[in-house]
């Protein structure tokens, strides 16, 4: 009976392993296929049945794809790096203080602030898009607008327009609050006794001790901004301001069926995020566990 049990669980285990490996291969297949096809020639990419490996590895596809669009991908990369990088820094600058306030300071209203932040998570992004567009276009004193928000184009067609609505992220605030709460309260009390300023405690104790969660929040924010399509597409019309994903969309409509160029462009838009993730993953996973998503 025992041995039958063992055999049963062993065969189950083998089945699961096969399933997992199969799924992993399926999961990777689009990436592998994309990379292999980005190195084929125009003639070879249209062969039926397809070759697995390219006959000649055409690295010039990458050069072509990089320089082909009117504004070039170099420009798109710079735009995306600015929007995602600066946007993430601003996000941290805005979200760390509020998380600190609601996790460490006991004052009337701190509970309500937290409740308000969490409830904004429920508001679907589709609702906010149209009013936010109007708000940014008529932002007072921005982009030649007068104090009533008339006359100019506000933050329409600017980096600020792409970034501003996402400085305050309810998700990041939630994550950072959980992380700050897990730092023992005694440190804070001791720092008060020592006469340390609130700000100094934040910079020298809280932030370093919560590094994994801060990295996690930054990574989520950076990836989200790097990959966002809808908002940048709406708020910009100037080609020189297009971030990567929007540029890629236009590249698709321009290049049409030159799939070897499309594959090359897709590959180099994915690579930076993958590299970033691989570097940050150690912190990222401990940070994700530390969000307090527990039973």
């Amino acid at each position: 009976m025992r041995s039958l049990d063992k055999l049963y669980s062993k065969s189950m285990w083998t089945l699961v392993i096969i399933l997992i490996i199969g799924l992993a291969l399926l999961s990777m297949f689009p990436f592998i296929w994309m990379f292999l096809n980005s190195l084929k020639s125009q003639a070879e990419i249209n062969l039926i049945p397809p070759h697995i490996l390219p006959e000649r590895w055409m690295f010039e596809n990458y050069i072509h794809a990089w320089f082909k669009p009117e504004a070039t991908f170099g420009r798109y990369f710079i735009n995306s790096t600015i929007v995602a990088g600066a946007g993430t820094l601003f996000m941290l600058a805005v979200c760390i203080p509020i998380s600190y306030a609601i996790s460490h300071f006991s004052f009337k209203g701190s509970k309500w602030i937290f409740f308000f932040v969490i409830s904004t998570m429920m508001i679907p992004s589709d609702i906010t898009i149209i009013p936010n567009f109007v708000t940014l276009r008529h932002f007072p004193f921005a982009g030649n607008n007068n104090w009533l928000g008339q006359g100019g184009q506000g933050f329409y067609d600017s980096y600020m327009g792409i970034m501003l609505p996402f400085f305050a992220s309810a998700f990041s605030i939630f994550l950072l609050r959980q992380a700050f709460l897990s730092v023992p309260k005694e440190y804070f009390e001791a720092s008060q006794v020592d006469g340390m300023t609130y700000f100094r405690y934040l910079c020298t104790v809280l932030v370093p001790l919560s590094a994994p969660s801060i990295v996690t929040a930054s990574l989520f924010s950076f990836i989200g901004k790097w990959n966002s399509v809808l908002w940048p597409l709406l708020i910009t019309s100037n080609e020189a301001l297009r971030p990567l994903q929007v540029g890629l969309l236009y590249f698709v409509s321009e290049e049409g069926h030159n799939y070897h160029h499309l594959m090359a462009a897709a590959t180099f838009t994915i690579v930076p995020i993958v590299v970033l993730y691989i570097f940050a993953q150690k912190w990222f996973h401990s940070g994700a566990v530390a969000t307090g998503l527990k039973g």
Partner: peptide, 10 residues
């Protein structure tokens, strides 16, 4: 974490 635009092309 892959951009959906790029992945959809593939």
């Amino acid at each position: 974490i892959t951009s959906q635009v790029a992945a959809a092309i593939v």
